[in-house]
Nucleic acid binder design. Structure first.
Lengths: 219, 219
DNA sequence: CGAAAAATGGAGTATCAACTCCAAAATTCT
DNA sequence: AGAATTTTGGAGTTGATACTCCATTTTTCG
């Protein structure tokens, strides 16, 4: 089963209907191009002209689908949230043991290596870029991280219910710590151009969870 | 003893001499203003004019001290690295037990709360902002993180030598994980405007270290 | 088919942002 | 003091960038 954003903030914010199939395709092409460029060079450094060229559209087309750059940025945030949550859903869906946790880690490291650590986390980069510049985007990103955290928390709760984690383990706090390890690890990996920091950060958190397993971890 | 950057990359890169006392003051004012603005709104969104206004200098003054924006950005990176390392040195200097680790955590949380989570980590924000846009700045930031990591590693090694950590604990990996927890926690705190994520992320890592204490942690 | 709606092409504009230039004032040094 | 050097003021230039406008083509739908 493919993951899908059921309640796109953007869809709620902005009319997506009244668009023909061709129109949808053009709009998608714009969002796609904008997302990649903004991930690679930052939001402010990405010009409308860059996006036009990459998407192969004219100015009038872009402004036909988006009132301005700000609106396009929100669409990009939405798109990247969907992408990231798709991967996380894939990696965390039905997670209930340490093997699943290892697969999730490997999934992320694989993706990071594939892009050679360029861009870091699409959500994390946008968050850092937009937190102080665009209050609307900040809230939207905060919600995306909330969902991500919930996904982790649910998985950890399943592990606890299943007896893989001790009773006194706090899935809520552990989810936050795990998410922070991922984000911090990705940032360090991005700046060092080396997947190792992400791997070490996540592995260390997994080790911590093991020490909280009902068995008491390896001693 | 006050912490001081002994080998400023900028100092090595750029002549700082031939400057009169007044000149130094003006230059410092520019770097100071640029650092704050770039932290608050990002590098690309901060205009030279913004900086001129905030520092109270004319265009010719700014270009008298810096060949262009890129050079100023490098000076800002250098300045922020010095600021952050100053705090970290203060928090980690002579660290050799869990009490010190708690003080270090409280120091960071206190600073974060003081600015109401705006801007996040000066180094982390610059790293995310410049990693893909400015290769020179990226290397400079990578070096700063390297120093930070070394500071952590040294502290953890002292703890291990002192018997606070088990023999098999790996200070190198734990330092990376701790740094990632700080960075990830700061990012989440910035986007949620709440110091809790940083606190939880760091506390979880400290808990992990406790589970690696020779005593075997609280059970 | 044919009218209405949607999509597109492309030239054009107004503003902003980085940077330049040169003369004048302040400071340093002998 | 006085020459050399550093610092400063501020108008001006060049190019980039977000956005507009309107005519034309394409698609939808009764």
């Amino acid at each position: 089963m493919e993951y899908q954003l059921q309640n796109s903030v953007y869809a709620r914010t902005m009319a997506t209907d009244g668009l023909t199939r061709k129109g949808q395709a053009t709009r998608d092409r714009i969002v796609q191009a904008a997302s990649q460029l903004m991930l690679e060079q930052g939001v402010a450094r990405t010009t409308i002209e860059d996006i036009q060229a990459a998407a192969g559209v004219s100015p009038s087309q872009l402004y036909h689908y988006f009132p301005g750059k700000d609106a396009l940025v929100l669409a990009v945030v939405d798109h990247q949230a969907g992408q990231v949550m798709g991967v996380q859903h894939q990696g965390l869906n039905g997670l209930d043991d340490f093997e699943g946790l290892g697969n999730w880690r490997d999934l992320m490291i694989g993706i990071l290596a594939k892009v050679q650590c360029v861009g870091g986390c699409p959500l994390g980069s946008l968050a850092s870029d937009l937190s102080e510049a665009d209050p609307v985007a900040r809230v939207q990103l905060a919600n995306a991280f909330e969902s991500w955290e919930a996904l982790l928390r649910n998985g950890l709760e399943r592990m606890r219910d299943r007896g893989e984690l001790a009773e006194h383990a706090d899935p809520g706090e552990l989810a936050v710590a795990l998410l922070a390890a991922v984000q911090g690890g990705l940032l360090l990996s991005q700046i060092r151009r080396d997947p190792a920091p992400l791997r070490v950060a996540v592995n260390t958190m997994i080790e911590h969870l093991r020490s909280l397993s009902s068995a008491g971890g390896v001693r």
